[in-house]
Design a protein around this nucleic acid. Structure first.
Lengths: 201, 201, 201, 201
DNA sequence: CATGAATGAGCATTCATTCAT
DNA sequence: TATGAATGAATGCTCATTCAT
């Protein structure tokens, strides 16, 4: 980036759209969806109110886009680090760590999930779609583990919901206690709790 | 107004207050807090708009009252059935079953928790207070179990959060799949997942 | 109504509703429906913006109410002065004069009709309903005249539309030229044009 | 951009201007002036939003241009078929038929007149100008007929307004009842009503 | 000439809350 | 206590118009 003679804040078109998304994320998390006016998003993003509606047909659509974008980001982070080693437990632990890492590196986005993953703010079909695309992958892992005799034989849907619940609980804990986020005792404990629930006896 | 010859259904003061609470519960769950206007609560409860504000100083206060009332109801249901038998696992299972039962018998109230237990709608201190009053009791159980060597020695706060997460996951599952609510295979599975996570090796 | 010690401008509930209707009439005529904001109606009527929506569910509903109210007023004025004499032409002339008089006494309301009677602003069914309730009465007169051999035998619907068209033209003329409104030469001419079209040869 | 080998449908400048006018006509009639956004006109005309403003300085100017263009078209159609025969009634009938024909062949444009000829949408001077240029011609016909003793001696301005009113009524009727548009009984009736009003006794 | 992203004033409507009765 | 008409600030969204490319 070379220093221009005169500092000019130039925003490309993509920048504006992204600025709106970034600002919306921050405000939705800190003030809630209804507590955040479209005017305040636009203002803080440095664009006109009309611009928001040029890029997103409605406030709800903006929220939906935000949700799907972040979910995808999370899914990418998980898959990127997923090793297909021969030891299932090791693979699962890797996954768990990646998920924890992502949430610690993106605390705002994680808070966004905590608040909106189950809220009626986001249309049920969008929620389910996003969820299934990730949990579908976990679902396969569980079935595979059961066939190998490494994972307990409980109904898969129940186990999936349980995985999700334990993951949300763990991130909630680490975000409320950020100084423990890299404490291996706590991180291992969180995984062990999870794994003990899942493993075959 | 003279005394009518024919008895007319008269709502006592307490009735009106309760009608407002009941209606608010139903509407907050189905339409969300912000999606529910005080006018609609009053109308559906069969009272005037002003009446709501005679009983509750504000919409937020009404929500807070609702939240605390239901939490207390839940706590009462748990404690009522809590046996202090000698076998810890049995006691815990009893507790788990009571909690599941309550959520199945009060699905609307459970949905209310799912939606609002972690939402910024309810002031953090109120949320924490309600939570600790119940989890305080669970916390004691865990410590006791650890001392007896029956429960794994992970940090208690982490375990507490995990308990809560697993409970929310289980009720979410059973409310989404009501026909499995009394299927003992699923109910036992949900407890086993939980207990395996908690138990000492 | 006794004189209060201190003159207080008190508006009863009905007053406010009526003030809104009156103001809306004046503004819709002078600035058009879309050119008139609900805020300006409320302000000029001396009420809060919310009050307008307390009495009318929407701006369109306000317009519809205005339209039907004025149409009814017009119909009442016509019927009030309708004599059932034995001479048809005399009766019809009486009617024509009453209609002209009403429009001259209520120029704003007449302008309202000129602007909105055929505009898509008012739902077609509302327009037709209002129209038929008055034209139904005219329709009977025409049929009766035809049976008596006093009115030409053209299709009734066509004659009705023609009556309406001539009436609008006449009032347009007199409102554009107010000084001729009571000039009997012009008034008689307007009636003669009309009657000659209608009469049997 | 190099010359393409294959001919591609290219819109010439005039095409785009005309496309905008055509689209505006259709939309103004079906949705009203205020109900039609310039963006929607541009989109449906297949041009960019900015293009509309290259051809017309404002939405109002577009409307004015549309109005004058169509009025001229109508005037041309009338004059084209106007025979200057020796029998006045025959000439007038010819004119009436031409006018009816034009309105039946151009129903959208006729609806445009019905909606906007008297609306405050179009500046009064533009309206009057367009009107007089045509009615000036009619005005001459009336005076001529009066001098020949064929047309009744009422004030000319009143008769002009009456002509216009009857014409609007007739086209309204035929557009609402398209199947009668070529029924000679109805067409003749519409003329006879008109002519009887005008003719000298 | 043509484009379409950007603008920001303006609008209809909502809603928690008040208060005279 | 109970009522419900009245309030007016706040909000999501629209749209004619501009301008850099």
């Amino acid at each position: 980036m070379n220093t221009p003679l005169i500092e000019q804040p130039i925003k490309t078109k993509t920048d504006k759209r992204q600025a709106i998304l970034d600002t919306a994320l921050a405000l939705f998390v800190s003030q809630g969806f209804h507590g955040t006016s479209t005017a305040s998003i636009a203002k803080q993003a440095g664009v006109a109110t009309g611009t928001l509606f040029h890029h997103f047909p409605s406030k709800e659509a903006l929220m939906e886009c935000l949700f799907l974008t972040i979910k995808q980001e999370f899914a990418n982070a998980l898959l990127l680090n997923a090793h297909q080693g021969s030891k299932l437990k090791h693979n699962v632990k890797q996954l768990w760590q990646s998920a924890l890492d992502w949430s610690l590196e993106n605390p705002i986005k994680q808070l966004f999930f905590q608040q909106y993953s189950m809220s009626p703010m986001i249309a049920k079909n969008v929620r389910d779609q996003a969820m299934n695309s990730i949990l579908g992958f976990i679902s396969e892992l569980i079935k595979q583990g059961q066939m190998m005799g490494l994972i307990a034989h409980y109904p898969v849907e129940l186990m999936l919901e349980n995985c999700h619940g334990q993951y949300l609980a763990a991130t909630r804990f680490f975000i409320d206690n950020p100084h423990l986020g890299h404490n291996s005792q706590y991180r291992n404990a969180s995984f062990e709790l999870f794994w003990k629930a899942m493993q075959a006896d």
